[in-house]
Design a protein around this nucleic acid. Structure first.
Lengths: 132, 132
DNA sequence: CGGTATCCCTCCAGATACTG
DNA sequence: CAGTATCTGGAGGGATACCG
């Protein structure tokens, strides 16, 4: 996120690995995929997202939404009523992004237990054993 | 990455969104997916990876490899020869992770131009127009 | 309601030097 | 060759206060 200000990468470097970074800057963000995921069933309002994404601060939700809007992943629509009403919705590109990340989410659900096991085993090998 | 030291998330919160964070901590890392990607054709040595992944520092390559090893994504094998020889290879779980991220990489290649366009359009709308 | 602005602190990650 | 150790700047992000 916030790639605009100081991205030092030369434009003349079209390798796959390099370009991948742009996408990782989107999905690797702490909150972006959670926001995308919460928009999977249609438009949501700011406060709805804030409640749905546990632990996100108002500031980070704003920052994340702006970034995704800038990247063309979602749209921001202001309804001029009282009280003010802003809704966010995935664009077509946002929907394809969500589809592209679906396998990853499935993988996570399928392998989280094994990751925990692997970590525990690794830590058991490397940590100083507490009790004799 | 480096989730061990101070992860404040309660264990008793098995919602999808919450658990997703663990995987995002892996793939969202700046270098992890690049390492995984570079191991797609079999084992690679430390220096090979360092050369293949442009811009990674020795420290970050070490940190990234350790983290992926801890998570059970790859294995580290020391060959006791002279000179020392260490090779890294994806585990079965690592290979499935790579497969799960493939759609995302394809998506990135397919949409990078549109992301650039979206950003340029957004910046044109929001930036202070330089000339009149 | 849906933001902005500001302060401030943590931790990431690059640079550099040293080692088995 | 393949690391580890240490220092350090700066970005990420929480808390808080205020605004249209």
């Amino acid at each position: 996120m916030d790639v605009a200000h100081g991205d030092p990468r030369p434009a003349a470097r079209p390798s796959d690995a390099c370009r991948t970074r742009v996408v990782l800057d989107i999905v690797g963000d702490k909150w972006s995929l959670l926001v995308v995921r919460n928009l999977r069933n249609g438009p949501r309002r700011f406060t709805e997202l804030k409640k749905a994404i546990d632990g996100i601060s108002q500031r980070m939700l704003t920052v994340t939404l702006r970034s995704l809007e800038r990247d063309g992943i979602l749209t921001r629509t202001v309804h001029e009523v009282m009280p003010p009403h802003v809704s966010y919705e995935l664009t077509e590109m946002g929907r394809t992004l969500r589809e592209a990340t679906a396998p990853l989410l499935e993988w996570s659900v399928a392998h989280l237990a094994r990751i925990d096991d692997a970590r525990a085993a690794y830590d058991a090998r490397t940590d100083t054993p507490v009790s004799s």
